[in-house]
Every structure is written in structure tokens, then in C-alpha cells.
């Protein structure tokens, strides 16, 4: 009884302590809320990031990869052999994006779909999971060289999951298990169906710029393949509606199938490509 009385006598003290109006409305908000701004760009470097274009917004992304810097001044550090990709991505909703692009690397057209399945939350789900699919059409294959070529050989497909976590305000990491299929591969020993695991991340160096890197581990590359796993390092710089991404990579292609399957540079002998992505939101 005495204990109960003591508790009862203590309770009113709590009631009186609400005198400060601000304290009365400033309830400790352990609200579940979505984590935003995991990455600045739609891509980390080569790999897609879990960022999507917002609803009813159109992003135009111009990407360049110069030729190998290895030949130095002779090709002006690769400027002479640059490839370009023009890419439009539209936000149907905040969670569904459709895109089309044309790359001068193998004259590839592609149609892409990117969709968020679940978003990382404060006090909630720890990851953002996004799906990415693409259909690619290689229009550089030539019937004169490949007499048996049919249209289906030009096609390639990408199926990818992007799993990211914003560890803190500065550091975000991502895993990208990837399956891709090319109906035409350069060497017979290479399976048409290929598997890869992408690792990527960004670290913010300031409010508006970050250092980014990604690496793709090809899981069933043919033993005699000349291609190598793509490693890329770069910087993001954001200025209002633009994001600039400048980077070095040992893959010159910018489509997922291209940089995973046909990266032919090599960091160890300086055979790498300078490039940038420039994105503008409309």
C-alpha cells in the first residue's frame, strides 16, 4: 500500500512538469522515416546506384569515356577515341523509372527499367533494394563479317538487384548481384549467360562532392577471355540541378553488359579510360 501511495504521489510531479509548452509538443520522435540521398547520381561510377529519378522528372545523362590514356599525347590522353552515351530517364513514379539510351560503344541502344522494391528507413528496414532491367541492341554487328547474323544475335539482357545502405551521412555502400545474357559473345568459350557481383560505395568529402568507386566481379568469365573485371574510381560534384561525375575506369563501355563483359583495360599497366557523366534534371 505504501509503495502504491508513493507511486501515486510521484505521478502528479510528472503532470506538473509539463509547464513548458515546447516540451509538451516536442515528443521524442522515433518516427520511421525514409532515408534519402544515399547517392548523388543515378550511377555510382559504372554501376547503377539505388537513386531514382523523381516522379514526372526527366533526367538527361551524357556520358563520355575517352580512349585509353596509355598512348599519352599521341591520342591526347584518349580524347581521340572517345565514346559517348546519351541517356534519358523518366520517373513514372518516385519508384519506377524508364530509360532509353544510345551509346557509340558498339552502337548499342538500350531500354531500361529501374524500380524500387523497398527503401531504407530510420528505425526501420536497413536497406534500399532496387531492381534494374535492360534490353540492349547491338547495332554494330555487321552481316558482312558475320554472314549467319540474325536480329536476335544483336540482343542482350540485364537483370540486376541493387542493394544499398547509407551507413551514415557520408558513407553509402552497395551490392549489385547481376545476371546478364548476350546472344552474341566474342569467343565461343564464354557462356552467353553470365553472372557478376558489383561492389560500390561513395564517401562524401564535402556537402556537394564525394569520392566514389565500384568494382565488378565476373563469376563465370571464360579462362581465355581477354576481358577484365571493371574497377572504377571517381568524384561526384553536385551543383543544384546538375551532377558531374568524373572518373577513371578500365572499362570503356557504359552499359552494364558492356563494362562487365567487355572491359579490356588494365589498371596495372596504365591502360585505363578517363570519363565523365553529366546529368541534368528537367
Amino acid at each position: 500500500m505504501k509503495i502504491i501511495l508513493a507511486i501515486l504521489l510521484l505521478t502528479p510531479v510528472f503532470t506538473f512538469s509539463q509547464d513548458d509548452l515546447l516540451d509538451e509538443i516536442d515528443k521524442n520522435s522515433n518516427n520511421i522515416e525514409n532515408v534519402n540521398a544515399v547517392f548523388k547520381g543515378l550511377k555510382i561510377v559504372n554501376f547503377e546506384s539505388t537513386k531514382l529519378v523523381a516522379k514526372k522528372e526527366l533526367n538527361f545523362i551524357v556520358s563520355h569515356r575517352f580512349g585509353s590514356i596509355k598512348n599519352g599525347i599521341d591520342t591526347f590522353f584518349g580524347l581521340d577515341n572517345a565514346v559517348t552515351r546519351l541517356n534519358f530517364v523518366y520517373g513514372i513514379t518516385d519508384a519506377i523509372n524508364l530509360g532509353v539510351s544510345r551509346s557509340s560503344f558498339l552502337k548499342v541502344y538500350d531500354i531500361t527499367a529501374k524500380y524500387r522494391l523497398i527503401q531504407q528507413q530510420h528505425n526501420g528496414f536497413p536497406f534500399t533494394i532496387v531492381g534494374f532491367n535492360a534490353v540492349l541492341i547491338n547495332t554494330a554487328l555487321d552481316k558482312n563479317n558475320l554472314p549467319l547474323l540474325e536480329f536476335k544475335h544483336r540482343l542482350g539482357y540485364t537483370m540486376q538487384f541493387l542493394i544499398s545502405r547509407k551507413i551514415n551521412q557520408d558513407l553509402s555502400l552497395q551490392l549489385a548481384p547481376t545476371f546478364f545474357h548476350d546472344n552474341y559473345v566474342l569467343i565461343d568459350e564464354q557462356d552467353n549467360s553470365q553472372f557478376a557481383l558489383g561492389l560500390g560505395g561513395r564517401y562524401k568529402l564535402g556537402k556537394r562532392w564525394s569520392i566514389n568507386a565500384d568494382y565488378g566481379i565476373h563469376l563465370n568469365r571464360a579462362d581465355n577471355s581477354l576481358f577484365r573485371n571493371p574497377l572504377s574510381v571517381g568524384f561526384d560534384l553536385e551543383t543544384g540541378g546538375h551532377v558531374f561525375q568524373m572518373h577513371f575506369s578500365n572499362a570503356q563501355a557504359m552499359n552494364t553488359n558492356g563494362f562487365l563483359g567487355q572491359g579490356n583495360g588494365d589498371w596495372s599497366d596504365g591502360n585505363i579510360y578517363f570519363g565523365f557523366n553529366l546529368s541534368r534534371t528537367f
Binding site: L21, I25, A54, E57
Partner: peptide
């Protein structure tokens, strides 16, 4: 006449998400 107000800063909505 004492008055207090509190807004969660993330609740501000702009013209576009960016």
C-alpha cells in the same frame, strides 16, 4: 499567451524532389 511551435525540417515540401 505563451505560444510554441515545432516543425520537423524534413516536412518542408518543394516544387521538386531534387
Amino acid at each position: 499567451g505563451e505560444f510554441a511551435a515545432l516543425a520537423l525540417v524534413k516536412g518542408f515540401r518543394f516544387k521538386n524532389a531534387l
